[in-house]
């Protein structure tokens, strides 16, 4: 892991990257594994509670559960931190425990950036306010585009993946469109 930039991620980022990998429907992009690619391209750190949340999500037999199971199988590739005592109750500002702990890690450990999927709601504001250095905050689509620009993922795959997320997660089409223009075209 030496030399890799350190990123903290929360539960949704892990699950959302794993979802297209396990999704066998025709709408899902194929040919690459963005979850695996992220974990080998960067040094990914998570608070313990994130793995707990992923475990909780893995119980059923729906798409999300399958994605959670996949994440758990790669858990060895994640560096975990027990920061429960650092982040007291109640958690701050409308962020849940996993998010609060991810923020704490980013602010207090040697972390280069934080990746979030929550850029379409007020939560994005909260993340910006809670981070000591908000220049460390990046969104999943931005990182996917970066991985494509640097050759870690095929640009065509990322194009398809962005469309898939736009359709299934209602990601902000305009913002994603600007990222596409900057990185993929």
């Amino acid at each position: 892991m030496a030399g890799k930039a350190v990123a903290v991620v929360d539960t949704n980022v892990l699950l959302n990257l794993a979802i297209p990998v396990v999704d066998n429907r025709s709408k899902a992009p194929t040919g690459e594994d963005p979850f695996k690619t992220l974990l080998v391209s960067y040094d990914i750190h998570v608070p313990d509670s994130v793995l707990g949340e992923v475990t909780d999500a893995s119980g059923g037999d729906d798409l999300l559960s399958q994605a959670a199971k996949l994440v758990l199988r790669a858990a060895d590739s994640l560096t975990t931190h027990d920061v429960r005592d650092e982040v007291g109750e109640p958690v701050d500002y409308g962020l849940d425990r996993g998010e609060s702990e991810a923020i704490w890690l980013t602010n207090n450990r040697n972390v280069d950036f934080l990746i979030t999927d929550d850029f379409g709601s007020t939560k994005y504001l909260l993340l910006n306010l809670a981070l000591e250095d908000r220049n460390k905050l990046f969104t999943t689509p931005h990182i996917l585009c970066t991985l494509a620009a640097d050759g870690a993922l095929h640009p065509e795959y990322v194009e398809e993946a962005l469309t898939y997320y736009f359709e299934t997660k209602s990601w902000d089409g305009k913002y994603v469109g600007l990222l596409r223009e900057r990185y993929l075209r």
Partner: peptide
């Protein structure tokens, strides 16, 4: 509006480079 402003600004930031093996 603030959310959008922050998000738009973030597009100009460059994430750390991936370290490809």
């Amino acid at each position: 509006a603030t959310r959008m402003k922050l998000l738009k600004e973030s597009i100009d930031r460059t994430p750390p480079e991936p370290q490809l093996e």
